[in-house]
Structures are given as C-alpha cells and as structure tokens.
C-alpha cells in the first residue's frame, strides 16, 4: 500500500516539475500534499498528516496560486503590480542570456540544481544504509529509556492530555512551538512589510 502511495507521489512530483504552467503545478502540488498527508497518517503521524492537509493542500496551495497570479501578470503590460517581478524577471533574463550565449558557464542553473539534488539523494541513500526500520522497537528513538518512551509513559499523567503529541508540542517542547508561532507571526509581518511597501520609495523629500 505504501509502495503504491509512494509511486503516486513520485509521479505527481514529476508531473508538477514537468508542468510549465505554474497554475497547474500548484494544483498538482495540492494533490501531492494530500497524498503525502495520507502517507503520514498511514505512518500514524496523525498531527503531521493533519497539518500537511490543512497547510500543504489548503493554504499553501492558495498562497502559491496567489503568488503565481501576481507574477503571471507580467504578461499584461502597464499598470502591473511590481511585486516579485524583479526577482523572477532577473531569473528569466539570466536564463535567457544563458540560452543565447554560446559560451555559457560550465554549470547552468539547471545543471547546478541537478547536481545538488543528485548529491542530496546520494547522501540520503547512503544514510539510509544504517537506518532502523520504521517502528522498530529497538531503534534508538523507540527503545526503552528513550525520550519518546518517556513521553508516552508520562504525558497523560503530567498534563492530562490523551493525545501525546499535544503535550510534547505544547508543554515538553512548548518553547519550540512558541518559536514556531513567532515564525508564523514573523512571516505574516514580513509579507505585510514587503507587500504594503511595494511601491518605490525614494526617501524623504528634503535634500539629504
């Protein structure tokens, strides 16, 4: 069953990469997230699956689409919102220049990306050699005396919560969660700062 899900995931990922239309890619990524979430749930990581579904398939797809929509407007001509344009434009120009120049640099962006991905994959495969099996009770993360065992045994008594994940996130490692909440806050604040400031500002009017 997992193999099937994984195969589908790979196919979806490839489809998303292959699609040049970012709108379609975003949609495909949404489906990818849903299946990914299914996989999480299948591995009994319910909260992760939940989050993946809510964020990966929902909000992030929508945000991705909104971003694509903004950027896509560049085809429209004047009166265009300037956001993100320079970045993607520069990238596009860069690629165009690379394509035109016969003496292109040794590693194009694509080759570079391929290299990075290949190396990462190789490292992961190498790392997988000595990995414990999923759910192996003898694995360091699961064996007696490990932190996970401690959580499982003591969480309900410590906090009165039935789902162990919640006290782990909110209490034992509540500080991490606070940090993550602040990350969310920061992200929103940052987007507000960048997007509400999108117009060009040349500084105060008095002469410097």
């Amino acid at each position: 069953m997992e193999d099937l899900i994984l195969a589908i995931l790979v196919a979806l990922a490839l489809a998303a990469v292959r699609l040049k239309d970012l709108l379609g890619a975003a949609a495909v990524l949404g489906a990818y997230s849903l299946l990914m979430a299914l996989l999480w749930c299948r591995m009994n990581a319910l909260d992760v699956g939940f989050t993946e579904a809510a964020v990966g398939a929902g909000v992030s797809t929508v945000l991705l689409l909104a971003a694509v929509n903004r950027v896509g407007r560049r085809e429209q001509g004047p009166g265009v919102s300037p956001l993100l344009k320079p970045a993607l434009w520069r990238l596009a120009e860069h690629r165009a220049a690379l394509a035109e120049r016969p003496d292109r640099p040794l590693l194009s962006a694509r080759t570079m990306a391929l290299l990075v991905v290949g190396l990462t994959a190789a490292a992961l495969l190498y790392g997988a050699r000595d990995m414990p099996r999923i759910g192996d009770p003898a694995a360091p993360a699961n064996r007696a005396g490990s932190v996970a065992q401690h959580y499982l045994r003591h969480a309900p008594a410590d906090t009165g919560a039935a789902n162990v994940v919640t006290p782990v996130l909110g209490d034992y490692r509540g500080y991490d969660t606070m940090g993550e909440t602040i990350v969310i806050f920061t992200a929103a604040l940052c987007v507000v700062l960048v997007l509400r400031q999108a117009g060009r500002w040349r500084g105060p009017k008095e002469a410097p």
Partner: peptide
Amino acid sequence: DIALSYALINFVGTIAVLRY
C-alpha cells in the same frame, strides 16, 4: 477528523485554482 478537514480543504483548493 482529518478526513473532514480534507473535505473542506480540497474544496478550497479547487476553488482557488479555478478562481485564478
């Protein structure tokens, strides 16, 4: 619980794609 949220989220996602 999760399935229920999927039902909601999937709808939102589809509407979003079509919207754009």
